[in-house]
Structure formats: structure tokens, C-alpha cells
Amino acid sequence: MSSARLFTLFQKIVASFALLALVSGCTTSSTPEQVLSVPASPQKYAAIVVDARTGKQLFEMNSTAPRFPASLTKMMTLYLMFEALESGRLTKETQMPVSVHAASQPPTKLRFRPGETIDVDTAIRALAVKSANDVAVAVAEYLGGSEEAFAAAMTAKARQVGMRGTVFRNASGLPDEAQHTTARDMAVLGLALRTHFPQYYYYFSATDFMFRGKLVRGHNDMLGRVPGVDGIKTGYIRASGFNIVTSYDAGGKRLVVVVMGADSARERNAHAEMLLQRALSPSPAKPQFAFSDR
């Protein structure tokens, strides 16, 4: 498919989100099959399931409520990296310096020393697989001049692709009270990454990569565990709970599932898998959810 046709399809998907928001507050049925426990409080939990081929919303709960993105933020950091690769501003061999500020970021990180450099290909893998905070800042400073300027560019790009409820304040997703997003916006970003950069989407399918002779393993346990799942990103800070954007592509179906605010990675993954299985069911029953009070 040509890039023009891909962009047109993506515009239709974003438009369909807007229409659904007007005509439907939630796709859950008033007569659900059963009550299922949500592994989070209502103040943190949000979820959405979208048919990536049509833009149809298959399920949502709290999908436009503000939430902390945590390391899902790095999806936009990667989006701007992919744009820079396409424009020729970066190559995969470009060396980016690591500043004192970048090296000082808290884990998860690759533990660079100030003055060292990282090539773009390794940086992409470090962000997509390991969610390295020191690398996110190094990328932001290289492309934006400063992390603050890069975060402003991230927010501007969010508006351009149809993310109406997102503000970025840093490139990593580390805690910042002014940084917020929505489950819907994260689904839009997941769709945009695949639509606009299919040639780079394989990075989100990686479960590990080699760095300085050592195998670095990732955090996304949905990969390799759930057939058809091919990405894309996890995230966690205490204020957000455990978040995930998951893509599925198999059997002629393509879905994006977002779960935010779970109490653990295991519960988040189980909940995302449950939503995925119900969306793939021939006649999925619409569940009612009960929140835990933890």
C-alpha cells in the first residue's frame, strides 16, 4: 500500500475515534455475561480495544480520562526518531552523545557514562525493548537541543496525529505531574506508528538485544506468550500503575489493546489478554467490571 493510502486510512481511523466519542460513552453492554475483576482502582484504570483496520472501537472504559503514561511516553520519542530517520537527519549509524543529565537518569537505564555515545540503531532497541531512561534523554537532547524543547515537539506531534488529551514534559515517562495522556491517545499513537512507519515496526517485536556483549532482555511478556501479539510497549511508575499498549496481527485481524493502571505486570498482561480474546470471539460478550479496592 502506498504511503498516501496509508495516511488516508489513518485519517479515517482517527476520525472514527472522534465519531465514536460523540455517539457512545462506552461499548459495554447493560446486560453483561459476567462480572470480571479489574486489577486497579477506578482512579488509575483505563482501557480500550480498537480494530486497527477499520478504527472501530470494540471496548472502552475511562479511555478519555487523564492518566500518567509512564514509559508509554517513549512511543512518541521513537516516533520522532523514525521521522528523523525518514528525513535523513539521522542514520542508524549516527552517534549521539550522552550528557551528564542523560547519564544521571534513574533506572531503567543502560548506565552510560557522561561523554559516551550511542548509535541510533542501539538507541531504538534500548527504548523499545529495555525502556532505557538515559537513552531517552540522550535522544531528546540530540534531536531537540534540550529535553524540554523535545517534549514540546512531542506534544505538537501528538496533536498532529490526533492525540487530543496528551501533554508531554519529558522523553522518558519518568514522574511529572504535568505529563498526562489517555488510553484512547495511546491507541491512536500505536496505530500511527504502524501506519506511518511499517518499515521500523519490527523493533517493537523484539524481546531482547545485544549490548556490549551482553544480552539485554525486555519487559513485554505478552510477546511470545500470546499468539498473534507483535508489540508494542509497556510502562510503569507508581502514580500510573502498570500500563501496556499491545498490538495483535493474525488471522486477518489486527487489533490494538491498551490497558492502564493495573496493580502488577502479571495482572496487566492477563487483563490485556482477556480483552484481546473477547475481541476475537465471534460474538464477544461485553463484560461488566468490578474494581478491587487495593
Score class of each variant (00 low, 15 high):
residue 10 F to L: 11
residue 244 I to H: 03
residue 58 L to I: 02
residue 284 P to S: 09
residue 49 V to N: 00
residue 47 A to N: 07
residue 23 V to W: 08
residue 202 Y to P: 00
residue 15 A to K: 08
residue 170 N to S: 12
residue 268 R to D: 04
residue 158 A to K: 06
residue 214 K to C: 02
residue 191 L to D: 02
residue 245 V to M: 04
residue 162 G to N: 08
residue 58 L to N: 01
residue 112 F to C: 04
residue 243 N to D: 15
residue 90 L to A: 11
residue 58 L to Q: 02
residue 167 V to F: 12
residue 244 I to P: 01
residue 255 L to N: 00
residue 236 Y to P: 05
residue 266 R to C: 00
residue 96 M to V: 05
residue 74 K to Y: 11
residue 110 L to S: 06
residue 113 R to T: 14
residue 194 R to Q: 13
residue 95 Q to H: 09
residue 51 D to S: 00
residue 69 P to T: 11
residue 136 A to V: 09
residue 252 G to W: 02
residue 264 S to V: 12
residue 189 L to H: 03
residue 43 Q to E: 15
residue 124 I to H: 05
residue 243 N to Y: 05
residue 66 P to R: 14
residue 144 G to P: 13
residue 7 F to R: 14
residue 79 Y to Q: 09
residue 32 P to N: 09
residue 207 T to N: 11
residue 150 F to S: 05
residue 41 S to C: 04
residue 68 F to C: 03
residue 257 V to C: 02
residue 177 E to R: 15
residue 91 T to H: 12
residue 171 A to G: 11
residue 100 V to H: 12
residue 264 S to L: 13
residue 64 T to M: 07
residue 149 A to I: 09
residue 52 A to L: 09
residue 185 D to S: 06
residue 30 S to C: 11
residue 76 M to I: 12
residue 133 N to C: 13
residue 63 S to E: 05
residue 124 I to S: 05
residue 88 G to M: 13
residue 193 L to N: 03
residue 147 E to P: 10
residue 194 R to K: 14
residue 62 N to C: 06
residue 172 S to H: 08
residue 32 P to H: 10
residue 14 V to K: 02
residue 186 M to C: 07
residue 185 D to T: 05
residue 147 E to K: 04
residue 17 F to K: 01
residue 12 K to Y: 00
residue 36 L to A: 01
residue 217 R to W: 11
residue 116 E to Y: 08
residue 206 A to T: 01
residue 82 F to T: 09
residue 110 L to P: 03
residue 156 A to L: 15
residue 160 Q to G: 06
residue 20 L to T: 09
residue 196 H to L: 14
residue 32 P to Q: 11
residue 247 S to F: 01
residue 244 I to R: 00
residue 62 N to K: 07
residue 215 L to Q: 15
residue 116 E to R: 04
residue 258 V to C: 03
residue 254 R to P: 00
residue 187 A to T: 03
residue 139 V to I: 15
residue 143 L to F: 14
residue 5 R to H: 04
residue 174 L to N: 04
residue 186 M to E: 14
residue 88 G to H: 13
residue 185 D to Q: 09
residue 87 S to T: 15
residue 149 A to W: 07
residue 61 M to L: 14
residue 257 V to K: 00
residue 280 L to D: 01
residue 137 V to W: 03
residue 207 T to G: 14
residue 66 P to E: 10
residue 69 P to W: 07
residue 159 R to V: 12
residue 4 A to I: 12
residue 158 A to P: 08
residue 110 L to T: 08
residue 187 A to R: 02
residue 213 G to C: 10
residue 128 A to I: 08
residue 55 G to I: 01
residue 110 L to R: 07
residue 9 L to Q: 12
residue 253 K to Y: 00
residue 27 T to K: 06
residue 5 R to K: 12
residue 260 M to A: 09
residue 90 L to K: 06
residue 21 A to G: 04
residue 67 R to N: 07
residue 209 F to Q: 05
residue 48 I to L: 10
residue 260 M to S: 03
residue 97 P to N: 05
residue 104 S to P: 11
residue 209 F to I: 06
residue 86 E to A: 15
